[in-house]
């Protein structure tokens, strides 16, 4: 999947917006740094998330990584498939979103990076 239509946060989450609906996952850079993902601590549908706040955790064998909400909103659906197959995020981080939310403030998207800026951001961090 092309990452051209995605927006990225500095904490390595991605957002794919379709109207007020947004899918949220972690980037290829993030899954690669984590290594084998063995557990995703998923939030519950119906919960509120706010931009910049932790809403989930992704764990590899070696480490646990908090997942920050890139936008605010209400969780409509969580990707339950990750309960039994967390490694799906390693296999394709952009197909395997973590939550789908109804955004409260779609204008928050403007604060995120496009894929080109994000690639630059990852390179600088290395």
């Amino acid at each position: 999947m092309s990452t051209k239509s995605l927006k990225f946060s500095q904490e390595h989450e991605w957002v794919k917006a379709e109207g007020v609906t947004a899918y949220i996952g972690i980037s290829d850079f993030a899954q690669h740094s984590l290594g084998d993902i063995v557990f995703v601590d998923l939030p519950k549908a119906g919960a509120k998330i706010s931009a910049g706040k932790v809403f989930a955790a992704v764990e590899s064998v070696k480490a646990v990584s908090d997942i920050f909400a890139p936008v605010s909103g209400k969780i409509i659906e969580v990707n339950e498939a990750l309960n039994d197959a967390p490694e799906l995020i390693n296999e394709d981080p952009y197909e395997n979103w973590i939550v789908m939310v109804e955004m409260e403030e779609p204008s928050e998207l403007a604060a995120l990076m496009d894929s080109e800026a994000y690639d630059e951001f990852c390179k600088e961090g290395e």
Binding site: G35, D36, V38, S60, V61, K62
Partner: peptide
Amino acid sequence: KMVDFGGWDMPVQYTSIIE
């Protein structure tokens, strides 16, 4: 992937810890 381990640059994994 190299990491610091007690002052040494050591390999933490080549491909995957599980593998």
